[in-house]
Design a protein around this nucleic acid. Structure first.
Lengths: 129, 129
DNA sequence: CTTATTGCTTACCTTTAGGAAAGTAACTTT
DNA sequence: AAAGTTACTTTCCTAAAGGTAAGCAATAAG
């Protein structure tokens, strides 16, 4: 088990701040999802609105702005008949890839576990009828 | 760059659900922080309240309950004069370790980047005076 | 002139997260 | 009997996240 040590049980200040920053930036319902979709290549606003199922234009615009301000994506206005805007990942965004992978792995294990627990519970509930 | 493939740009349903579950369970202001503190060993409610700076007993109780229900921690009532309650990680919790590490790494890089950007901006702002 | 498309913005509202402060239950110490 | 400790719970409140619906600007096609 590899574990990062911070002296005597004390998370140093920088580490705590870094952790909070990361959670704030990538947390919430949509961020990781948006980044993941952009990983397949540049996407227009409309594309994202369709791919990221359930997101509203308002929220999408907000999330994209935050990601742009944090240098994870680039916004480009294209010279097309109805204006289109493209969003693509910056190299920095690929650093978030590890977070995505870890979350996906953890989430998958977690789902399997909870599913197993539920089926166990329902079978013991049957016995209680 | 290792990237998990989901066929033709389509996140399969299970993967999307797993991702959401993980974000819901580990997201928010306190969860990762609490797990990290428990990694140094069993802690009582009071200990956690002191170590996790700024958390209120109400929120701590809520977070601990959620973690327990998701099988990441164990709650034990001790036979002490004023009752004490111990919380410790289950083996499953160690699977969240990778998420923590990835977040910490990402957050650290992110902070460095944003810091650099700010100092650049302020120097160009000086030129605009 | 009307309608469509793209990329938003605005206004309004509901839900959720989380903070502050006080209280409670069980037990011990003084 | 009063006060302290631990582990909460309860109530009240605010701020932020997020949803719904509509509107708007620019342009083009019918």
């Amino acid at each position: 088990m590899i574990s990062i040590k911070f002296g005597d049980e004390k998370l140093c200040r920088e580490a705590r701040l870094a952790l909070r920053d990361a959670i704030e930036l990538l947390g919430g319902k949509w961020k990781i999802c948006i980044l993941q979709h952009l990983e397949f290549g540049t996407k227009r606003f409309k594309d994202l609105q369709e791919k990221v199922v359930g997101i509203s234009p308002k929220v999408l615009a907000k999330e994209l702005l935050e990601l742009e301000q944090n240098l994870l994506i680039t916004r480009t206005v294209n010279n097309t008949r109805p204006v289109t805007v493209s969003y693509s990942l910056t190299p920095h965004a690929y650093e978030a890839q590890a977070v995505y992978n870890a979350l996906l792995k953890f989430g998958t294990q977690q789902r399997a576990r909870v599913k197993a627990q539920l089926s166990h519970k329902s079978s013991s509930a049957e016995r209680n009828v």
